[in-house]
Design a protein around this nucleic acid. Sequence first.
DNA 1: CTCGACCTGTACCGATCGGTACAAATCCGG
DNA 2: CCGGATTTGTACCGATCGGTACAGGTCGAG
Lengths: 186, 186
Amino acid sequence: MTGASPARAAAVAAVAEVFREHGYAGASLALIGARTGLGKGSLYHLFPGGKAEMAQAVLDDVEAWFEASVFAPLRDTADPAAGLRTMMAETRTYFRSGNRMCLVGILALTAERDPFAGKIAGYFSAWRAALATALRGRDGSEAVEIVAEECVAAIQGALILSRALDEPDVFERVLSTWEQRLLARV
Amino acid sequence: MTGASPARAAAVAAVAEVFREHGYAGASLALIGARTGLGKGSLYHLFPGGKAEMAQAVLDDVEAWFEASVFAPLRDTADPAAGLRTMMAETRTYFRSGNRMCLVGILALTAERDPFAGKIAGYFSAWRAALATALRGRDGSEAVEIVAEECVAAIQGALILSRALDEPDVFERVLSTWEQRLLARV
DNA sequence: CTCGACCTGTACCGATCGGTACAAATCCGG
DNA sequence: CCGGATTTGTACCGATCGGTACAGGTCGAG
């Protein structure tokens, strides 16, 4: 079963970094083995489905983290502002101030994404929905969904631009701009 | 020489689509051969440097297109509003309303980007600078560079989100939102 | 028609790909 | 200490990888 043994959890974290840095096609079993410190035997014991199952596990891992650290606080309508601040803080930490790419975004881009398309869409959809819920707190009338999706897109784009320009400040600027912009709405 | 024979130009366009859809690592010579209709002999005749030279050629191609169709109009300070409108229209067309990925963004993400890092950074840097120039038209004092980079990031992020959610509308919305936002500044 | 330059298809190279098989090592309850 | 289950390293598989070699085709200039 796809249980949660500590060994597997550690492997998932390491595999995630390889996918982040090389994409799905570029993440060879050799790279994954080196990063995890595991031979093929162990790798295929933990992930009988091979590379595809590793990607699924990694996506589940990301989704669980975001669900607990970002989506849940955002859905707490009692204090939307606190939820937004939490989201921004966690996002900043998670992406290491722009030095770490978004795994889901990377997996979304290339043609090999098809087996994961559902999970990928669900992830961004959940983020947008949770953010819209927080924004709807007091601002019931306006098109909060559109603001929410623009914010998510801005974060993704900031990651790309930061990396392409090798300027982590870009990510920081976009994040703080949006934090102010969102807090002004609730 | 890396001249501009028609055959090579056609090949560059086809190769670009393969890179767009599969990333650098995922773009195998088999895929490239199938898409271009060229055998390895012709491919290595046109691009003696192999895959790396193809990527360079493709980046040059994109850069030339953007320079002529987007950057140049933006730098025409006589009519900034017209330049902005042109940029948005060309961007919408180029990315096929969100159904076509940004080649430079894709190449920027993975670790194999290193040989092209300079060109990639230059491309986004030129876009940001040209956009800032257009914005500086009348609005001399404000931090136009920051607005410009936020806009470029928003477009990149909108492409990712559109593709991940399989909702081209996301791209359209972000683009038109930013068009209004920018035109209000000049 | 001949020749040489250009172009292209094909066979082939060693390396690496993702994946499998399996035996040895390790672990742990009895 | 035993013995079965779990975990691991390693050898190996066919396929495909990026790249090379080269023979033959195509073409226009002389």
